[in-house]
């Protein structure tokens, strides 16, 4: 039984550099961005490209652990949990995936592609009023990614794309908006706030920001270039 996942340091906004890199042979690559930033499309294309180039790839998506994701979805439907409780549940989901999928894959030398990671929690939970330092402390157990790409879009463009997408994403967003109704006048205001929080993470956490208002192919090319440079440096 491994107990290596306990945090060995305390993550804080003042000292993000203290976040230790992992020592596994694999790579942890994160694609971040709000819904409507084109995240899923880009990560699908990246996964394909990595596989074509012979890398073993493990996808690990936000809120996808067998253990917790169902609980989170059920609770969201009932709108029964507070932002703080959601926050801890999402962290539980990250821990479950880290301990049972991500670490084993990194140990085996895989590229782990994470569709969203702790930055999602940092941006969304703080936008919902959860204390910033507390959130960073909570996620101190999480492995530091080797590369984190942040797909940057404006609120307007993200909303336009969400409206144009299939129902599931819009439904999820409507629920979130409803659960914090009263403090947030509209989803637009919330999205504005989340994007502002994300933008504030670029410097301290060295996120690679890519302008995602560009055509899909051009965004993908930039992502591949970053990933390629990174993988070559490390091998």
């Amino acid at each position: 039984m491994s107990v290596t996942s306990w945090p060995e340091h305390r993550l804080s906004i003042e000292n993000p550099a203290s976040w230790q890199s992992h020592k596994y042979p694999g790579w942890l690559i994160v694609i971040e961005g709000v819904d409507g930033a084109g995240r899923s499309t880009q990560i699908d294309l990246l996964e394909l490209w990595l596989k074509v180039h012979g890398y073993g790839v493990l996808r690990s998506d936000w809120n996808s652990s067998k253990l917790v994701s169902r609980t989170i979805r059920d609770a969201r439907r009932q709108q029964s949990l507070t932002p703080l409780t959601y926050s801890v549940l999402h962290a539980t989901d990250v821990a479950a995936r880290q301990e049972s999928e991500i670490i084993p894959a990194l140990r085996a030398g895989f590229v782990v592609l994470a569709d969203r990671y702790v930055y999602t929690a940092f941006a969304r939970d703080t936008a919902r009023g959860v204390d910033r330092d507390w959130i960073y402390n909570l996620y101190s157990f999480a492995l530091r990614p080797d590369l984190a790409v942040y797909l940057q879009v404006s609120t307007d463009l993200s909303l336009e794309r969400i409206r144009g997408m299939a129902g599931e994403v819009s439904l999820e967003q409507a629920d979130e908006s409803a659960s914090v109704r009263g403090a947030l006048r509209s989803f637009r205001e919330f999205q504005d706030r989340v994007i502002a929080e994300y933008d504030g993470l670029i410097d301290p956490f060295q996120l690679v920001a890519i302008d995602s208002s560009q055509p899909m192919r051009s965004v993908q090319q930039q992502i591949r270039r970053k990933v390629d440079t990174y993988l070559e440096e490390r091998s």
């Binding site: 039984m1 491994s2 253990l67 949990l81 507070t82 409780t85 801890v88 539980t92 821990a95 049972s100």
Partner: peptide
């Protein structure tokens, strides 16, 4: 027996957070 250490710890914290609030 699916709970690993940190997951175990956080899951209980989530349960606790819900009871504190509600």
């Amino acid at each position: 027996r699916a709970l690993k250490t940190v997951t175990f710890s956080l899951f209980y914290a989530a349960d606790f957070a819900d009871r504190v609030a509600n």
